[in-house]
Nucleic acid binder design. Structure first.
Lengths: 110, 110
DNA sequence: GGTATATTTTACCAACTGGTTAAATAAGAG
DNA sequence: CTCTTATTTAACCAGTTGGTAAAATATACC
């Protein structure tokens, strides 16, 4: 199974977050680690499909894998999320400003 | 040119951010609006390629297009970035905690 | 060794992506 | 109307993605 490796970590992070299944997996891992079968349970896709999603998350550094008997538990690694957050934060001013404009427009309407 | 439309706005946003060219375009738009040719200038790709990137950003709601004579100026729309930021923020505790663990480990090493 | 459970790998497929070139469209200027 | 400039569309291509089914691998248990 070929998984493309961008030499650009933040692109990998955003690409990994661009899929609802993968975001749900991260949400499931927030309270603590889980096995692949546990992670797959809520989805109506096959186990290999989930395994691929985990590989994408792993490549992005968003999860780490353990080894316990025949289980390969996953746990969240939030480091890349920090980088993504810092990238987005640079635009905070913009969405706050555009809210202000909408707000004062709504004021005018009264 | 077929541009896939996910019924999932935040997936579109993250997918749009997953490309370095598109992130650079957004950065260029932060100080103010720009024409397509101006946006294309720093890249060694053709104009239609940039036009496609702008379409992806438009679909994600990250830019709006104007009309001035034969120019179609782009300006940043940061709304979707706010949603992306809010999604990521839920994990802030996780990257701060993992920093704390690294920090106390480094303390121990001394 | 043989069996059961958990997970990954392989091979395959249709759809999407990111790029190209060439042609089409839009608007201003002479 | 013609020419120039700005931009998009169309057709195409190679590579990636997200899924599948079937086979392979890993570990525990008897």
């Amino acid at each position: 199974m070929v998984i493309a490796t961008t030499p650009d970590p933040i692109s990998n992070t955003f690409a990994a977050l661009a899929d609802p299944t993968r975001r749900a997996i991260l949400a499931r891992l927030a309270p603590g680690e889980a096995s692949v079968t546990e992670l797959a349970e809520p989805f109506k896709m096959t186990l290999p499909a989930v395994s691929k999603h985990l590989k994408v998350l792993g490549r992005a550094g968003l999860i780490a894998r353990g080894r316990e008997a025949q289980w390969r538990p996953c746990r969240l690694q939030a480091g890349p999320l920090k980088d993504a957050d810092e990238w987005i934060e640079r635009y905070r001013r913009h969405w706050e400003e555009s809210f202000d404009r909408l707000d004062s427009y709504l004021q005018e309407l009264r």
